[in-house]
């Protein structure tokens, strides 16, 4: 793919060391020169303009910066961009398309699972990871899977409903035989991120 602008940022005027990394973001390989100390969240936001990934705490507590890293939910404020070299990252911008929403996105608006919207991208990415691993979670499993993500507005009840709504929507959309095959994954425990 060609573009009008070179993505590779010019080397800083100082002698700050940089490293070239290639990260597949939302399906597109992106190559950038980065300072080794640059956080992945900042690369996504400032380097690539993907501002849907928010930072709310700097200490890995709030989860607003949650993205999928090789499919697993991680907090991108606590990973260096250079660590992601060669890996795949999915952000909220890669969830659904402009015309077709992911069921998780639909669920959040359908069940009023957001108010100010700041935690929402991270919540949705954590929810997506849960449903990928467990298409039929219980309320308790949803609450546990989202316990690394803080919301100050909703009181969580509608967020839980939103995820359960999305799970139901996805199961309904699945042909019955596949649904049967998927049922085996129900027992797989959802990994709580560190």
């Amino acid at each position: 793919m060609t573009s009008l602008f070179e993505e590779i940022t010019p080397a800083p005027a100082t002698d700050v060391p940089v490293r070239r990394v290639t990260i597949t973001v939302n399906g597109q390989p992106r190559t950038l020169d980065v300072e080794p100390r640059l956080l992945l969240a900042h690369l996504l936001r400032q380097g690539l303009g993907l501002t849907g990934t928010h930072t709310g705490c700097d200490t890995t507590n709030c989860g607003a910066c949650t993205v999928l890293y090789d499919g697993a939910p991680i907090k991108s404020c606590t990973m260096l961009a250079v660590q992601a070299d060669g890996h795949e990252v999915q952000t909220v911008e890669g969830l659904g398309t402009a015309s077709e929403l992911d069921p998780v996105q639909e669920g959040f608006t359908h069940e009023h699972g957001l108010q100010c919207g700041f935690c929402t991208p991270g919540m949705m990415m954590a929810s997506r990871a849960l449903l990928n691993a467990n298409p039929d979670p219980t309320e308790e499993e949803v609450r546990f899977a989202l316990s690394g993500n803080l919301c100050r507005c909703t009181g969580y009840q509608n967020i839980v409903k939103a995820v359960l709504w999305a799970a139901q929507r996805e199961r309904d959309a699945q042909p019955p035989e596949e649904a049967g095959a998927e049922a085996a994954t129900d027992d797989v425990p959802v990994e709580q991120e560190a």
Partner: peptide
């Protein structure tokens, strides 16, 4: 349903 959700759920 909330109008503002349209941008928030897209990270926009």
């Amino acid at each position: 349903r909330r109008v503002e959700d349209n941008r928030f759920i897209r990270g926009r």
